[in-house]
Design a protein around this nucleic acid. Structure first.
Lengths: 115, 115
DNA sequence: TCCACATTTGAGCAATTGTGCAAATGTTCT
DNA sequence: AGAACATTTGCACAATTGCTCAAATGTGGA
C-alpha cells in the first residue's frame, strides 16, 4: 500500500490518463456487484434456465438439484441486483430475466469460452 | 437438498426442457470463473485502466492505490483466466486485455448500469 | 379457522477470498 | 559479483460466501 515504484516519465502520463478515465468508484462497485452475481455456478444455472422461460423457486430447485432454501437465497441476490424480476401467482413466485442485457452478456460469455 | 416440491404437470415439461438445454457442468464452471474474475472492484479497475493502454504492475499499483503485491495477486487471476495477457520488457511486465470480448462485455455492463 | 404447501428468512458453519508482509526471483547496470 | 529495482510467491488473517437447518411468513382451499 505504501510502497512506491520509481516511475518513468512516460509512465506518469499514462498513469494520469488512466486515473482520469477510470469510472467513478461507485460505478465500479455497481459493475463489480453485477459481475459478482453472475460469477457463481448456482446463480448461472438459474439464469441459463431462465433463458428459456419463467420458472418458480421450486422448479429451479429441481433443475439445479439444490435445496429450495439455497435457491431462494441466490434468487434474492439476483433480484436485489436487478438481474431477475418476478411475479407472484398464488403460492408460486415466478422468476424471469430482467432485461436484454443479461441475455446478451450470457451469450457473449459463452462465445468467449468457445475460443 | 432432499426436499422435493409437489410439481404440477405443466411445470414438469418446463423443468425437463430447461434441464436439457442447460450447458454442461464444465461450461457452467468456466463461465462462472470468467464472471467471478470480473466481479471484484480491484480487478475491474485494472481492466478499465487497461482499456486505454497496456500498463505494468507498478503503474497499476499507482492507479489503484493498492500494494504491488495485491495487484500482482489479482493479475495472476486475470492472467490464469485468459482475461489479460502480458509481455516482458526488461524489469517490467506489461499487461493488456486479452481480446475484444472483454471490451465488449465491459461496455455492455456499463450500459446496463446506466438504466 | 385450520391445513397443506410454496417461499423467505436468520443463524451457524466450513470454505473461499483479498490483502499486506516478508522473502524469493528476475533483470539490468556497473 | 553486487547493487538497485520490478515482480512474483507463500503465509497469515480478517472478511465474505454458499449452503443447510429450523423457524417464520404467505396463500389458497376445506
Amino acid at each position: 500500500m505504501t510502497e512506491i515504484c520509481k516511475v518513468y516519465e512516460e509512465h506518469l502520463d499514462k498513469i494520469l490518463e488512466a486515473k482520469k478515465k477510470l469510472p467513478e468508484e461507485e460505478t465500479i462497485l455497481e459493475v463489480s456487484d453485477f459481475f459478482d452475481a453472475l460469477g457463481n455456478p448456482t446463480r448461472l444455472k438459474i439464469l441459463f434456465a431462465l433463458l428459456e422461460d419463467e420458472l418458480c423457486t421450486c422448479d429451479l430447485s429441481n433443475i439445479t438439484g439444490l435445496s429450495v432454501s439455497a435457491i431462494s437465497h441466490q434468487l434474492r441476490i439476483l433480484k436485489d441486483r436487478k438481474i431477475v424480476t418476478y411475479r407472484k401467482d398464488g403460492k408460486n413466485v415466478f422468476y424471469s430475466l430482467d432485461d436484454e442485457h443479461i441475455r446478451e452478456i450470457l451469450k457473449v460469455a459463452l462465445k468467449h469460452m468457445e475460443e
